[in-house]
């Protein structure tokens, strides 16, 4: 008899867990009152950088290690992955930020201006050195999520907006699971999407800055995502002028041509995080909770999904297991 699971939530965690269990022969139902992925969930607003090494600057080693599984998983799940690495730069007076970043991360190559001119010519107009993070990749979150959901639906995964839970319940509701996981908190993030054909970038770029760090992810057709603030607040609406100005200013500092870009979207949501900002698989009252992916949704969801699969099917306790 086919084993059944019910997954609550269809953000990046819910969908990767659904794909993993479906791939291993389980009958999967996904319940999400909001329907298909959209602006109501924070997966919609993500950068989509599969940048395990960069995250190592601040995040714990486990994030880096688990994050290295991401690109391959996404690719085998049918997502379009760009394996171009990413570039890290710092403005003139913050040059030492680049040294500090290099000390605290792995898998990078220091680029001179002429090296940079070959990798990202537009940046070479502005920066005389940069780090190329050679092992990193990126994806475009929205089409990736929608395509994954369509494929799963076509293959028989059932998506409903309400209904009974059958079999093992797996709660992937993100911040909404605060009702069951009291340690969960929101960390507000604001982002901006712009369009310009005056700058071309082939890979995500991080601008190190002591006050206004920024990343820019190229989405193709001249579209760029600028992210993201990180504010200790559970607020999921209300992008502030100050945050948006800081993001736009940082982009303008990265390359003045961004000054003429068209503003397409301003986004805001809160990331679900535990006090250590590390993800958890929690067992509580018979339900499995997968949560706390913080700013590492697309980076960590594949490893989380793998571990949920190993837990549910093989009975193997995940390394990030929490018994509530």
């Amino acid at each position: 008899m086919t084993q059944t699971v019910t997954i609550l939530g269809s953000g990046v965690v819910g969908l990767t867990v659904a794909a993993e269990l479906h791939g291993r022969g389980y009958a999967v139902t996904v319940i999400d009152p909001n329907g298909a992925p959209g602006p109501h969930g924070c997966s919609w607003w993500a950068g989509g950088m599969l940048a395990a090494d960069c995250e190592g600057e601040v995040a714990e080693p486990v994030v880096v290690r688990l994050g290295r599984e991401a690109a391959e998983w996404w690719q085998s799940a049918g997502a379009e992955i760009t394996y171009n690495g990413s570039v890290v730069v710092a403005l003139g007076r913050d040059r030492q930020e680049l040294d500090r970043f290099a000390r605290r991360t792995e898998n990078h190559k220091l680029l001179s201006r002429s090296d940079l001119a070959e990798v990202e010519p537009f940046l070479a107009e502005r920066f005389d050195r940069a780090l190329l993070m050679t092992q990193e990749a990126h994806l475009n979150p929205r089409p990736t999520l929608l395509a994954l959901r369509s494929r799963l639906a076509a293959e028989g995964v059932s998506f409903v907006q309400s209904g009974e839970e059958h079999g093992q319940a797996i709660d992937c509701r993100g911040l909404a699971a605060q009702d069951s996981l009291p340690e969960l908190r929101g960390v507000k993030g604001e982002m901006v999407i712009i369009r310009t054909n005056d700058v071309q970038l082939d890979r995500p770029v991080r601008l190190l800055h002591p006050r206004f760090p920024l990343y820019i992810v190229p989405r193709g057709d001249g579209v760029f995502m600028l992210g993201a603030t990180q504010i200790e607040s559970g607020e999921r609406t209300r992008a502030t002028v100050r945050s948006v100005v800081e993001l736009l200013n940082a982009a303008y500092a990265l390359h003045p041509a961004f000054g003429e870009a068209e503003l397409l979207e301003i986004g805001v949501d809160a990331r679900p995080a535990f006090p250590d900002n590390l993800p958890r698989i929690t067992g509580k009252d018979g339900t499995i909770y997968v949560n706390g992916l913080f700013r590492h949704g697309y980076l960590l969801a594949p490893a989380m999904a793998r571990m949920v699969g190993e837990l549910v099917i093989d009975g193997k306790t995940p390394e990030i297991w929490h018994e509530a």
Partner: peptide, 30 residues
């Protein structure tokens, strides 16, 4: 992370913590 913050406070034996109010002041005590 807040966990590392708490760890730092324990080892610092600091007597006072300053906390910023302004940026985190969303509605409903966010």
């Amino acid at each position: 992370s807040p966990a590392i913050l708490a760890d730092a406070f324990r080892r610092s034996k600091a007597g006072i913590a300053t906390v910023s109010v302004r940026r985190e002041s969303g509605g409903e005590k966010a």
